[in-house]
């Protein structure tokens, strides 16, 4: 299959993809020009959001305290980023794809176990959900999760073992199957069938997006809502359509200050201010502009036309019982996901 494309968008996506690989290494300590330097370790698709948000914060911080601040961001697969922080990457704040990855950092004593209670809304200033990105005109007629397991449909999604976004994809499919077919056994069957329709299992969300958009592989991409909007924006409306399934999951990408690192660097106050600004009207507006669903009801109202209404389950739903339990059941060694690939 071949599609017309915009060379600039193509190049940009490539650059982003290559940068994704190089970013964690490229963070060499720079000359200390600013009064405060913050390092935000984030996940894959937040590049555009934080590039803009960092400028906003630098301006606000200067106005409020008179101090200049330089913010660096590192992006990559959420699990990999968490591991970098555990292994000593000097993050002041982490803004990752799912709570479990920050839990893993907390388990090693970098921050308090109750970190998710320190900020409002489960420490997730913005949310997203999982939607389908399909080829223009939706030639395979994909409308809901059922259609993904139909003969001849190829689904693109990353490996949930390595990608935070992929875990949300998987759990959304699970939630749908559980509700539709009524038993865990059936849900397992459905999710297993779905993964048999996956021809390429990339390690990160951006990788999958490139496979689907650039390589022309697959009929449907399971994507973060913001990533789906971004692809449409980058490649133009004439190549892809977004399909919103009847039920999806409320993805809450959480944020936290890494206590141990800021205590050592003396950056605690700036790091707090950085995360607080995400909850302000301005921060919320910026999140919405970057296709993250804002938490603030007023801002949400302003953007309600952008974000379609979906029936959303949360990770704390009894079907999952929170991240730690979901991780254990589905993604741990020998968990449901491994069982899918073991026979």
């Amino acid at each position: 299959m071949s599609f017309p494309f915009k060379p600039v968008a193509k190049a940009a996506l490539f650059a982003a993809f290559v940068a994704a690989l190089a970013a964690p290494i490229a963070l060499a300590p720079a000359a200390r020009a600013a009064d405060v330097t913050l390092l935000n370790v984030s996940y894959d698709p937040t590049r555009e959001l934080y590039a803009q948000f960092n400028k906003l914060f630098a301006a606000r911080y200067k106005a409020d305290t008179g101090k200049s601040v330089e913010i660096k961001t590192s992006h990559g697969g959420s699990g990999k980023q968490a591991r970098s922080v555990i292994d000593g990457l000097d993050a002041d704040v982490v803004t990752l794809a799912l709570a479990y990855d920050i839990d893993a950092i907390a388990d090693r004593g970098f921050l308090a176990q109750d970190w998710q209670k320190r900020l409002p809304d489960n420490a997730s200033p913005y949310t997203s959900t999982i939607v389908f990105l399909v080829r223009k005109g939706n030639p395979k007629g994909i409308k809901d999760w059922d259609d993904l397991a139909k003969p001849g449909v190829q689904v693109i999604t990353p490996n949930p073992k390595t990608s935070g976004g992929a875990r949300w994809n998987y759990l959304a499919a699970w939630a749908y199957a559980l509700k539709t077919y009524g038993s865990e056994e059936k849900a397992k069957e459905f999710v297993g069938e779905l993964y048999r329709h996956v021809p390429v299992l990339d390690t990160g969300a951006r990788g999958s997006t490139v496979t689907f958009t650039e390589r022309g592989v697959g009929d449907v991409l399971l994507a973060w809502e913001n990533e789906a909007f971004l692809s449409k924006k980058e490649f133009g409306d004439d190549r892809f359509d977004i399909v919103v399934p009847s039920l999806s999951i409320l993805a809450e990408p959480p944020v936290a200050v890494v206590d141990k690192n800021v205590a050592r660097k003396g950056t605690g106050e700036a790091a707090e201010a950085y995360l607080k600004l995400l909850y302000s009207k301005e921060g919320q507006k910026l999140a919405a502009e970057n296709f993250y669903r804002p938490r603030d009801p007023d801002v949400a109202k302003d953007y309600e036309k952008v974000f379609p209404k979906v029936d959303l389950v949360t990770i704390d739903d009894p079907a999952f019982g929170g991240w730690r339990k979901a991780q254990q059941t589905h993604f741990a060694d020998g968990g449901v996901f491994d069982q899918i690939y073991s026979n």
Binding site: N159, K161, D333
Partner: peptide
């Protein structure tokens, strides 16, 4: 790499 990312 996958095992590392599972923190194992």
């Amino acid at each position: 790499v996958i095992r590392l990312e599972e923190f194992r």
